[in-house]
Amino acid sequence: MTKDFEPLIIGFTCNWCSYRAADMAGTARLKYPPNVRLIRLMCSGRIDPSFILKALAGGADGVLITGCHPGECHYLEQNYKALRRVKLLKRTLAPFGINPDRVKLVWASAAEGVKLAREIGVFVEEIRELGPLNWPARSTPEINPVVEEVEEVAG
């Protein structure tokens, strides 16, 4: 089943660094797998755990969060806050029945188109290994209420 499984990944990017890295990957015509769809935020500090849950509940198999390198945040140090938040969230994923490795944080500066493209490729393969999440479709009674709750929190 996992053989022709194409993972679906939602990626959050920071307007100042990783989104620009994605622009740069484009300008340089680098190639990376098409499995990732990006959302632009102003800063990785904007990452709300419910964004991640919403993406996973909505059908994504993995979530990639990208931000400026520590010490290089355009808003001074908000990426550290993202780091803390993502770490916490990963800890709470297991009880939901989700492998924490489905959520990954990667630093990429505006100049690192190559790195971003490479990291996307690596993450797609990691998720391919983990297989599909099928969270909402897996309608076991224990999980259903959780999904509904997430849907509710996520609006």
């Binding site: 935020l41 709300d48 909505g58 609006g155």
Partner: peptide, 20 residues
């Protein structure tokens, strides 16, 4: 937050996954 509100981000997530 204006321009990047929860609603906007949630809606975009929904939209990005609409096909599937």
């Amino acid at each position: 937050g204006t321009v990047f509100s929860d609603k906007q981000v949630f809606a975009q997530i929904d939209g990005l996954l609409f096909l599937e």
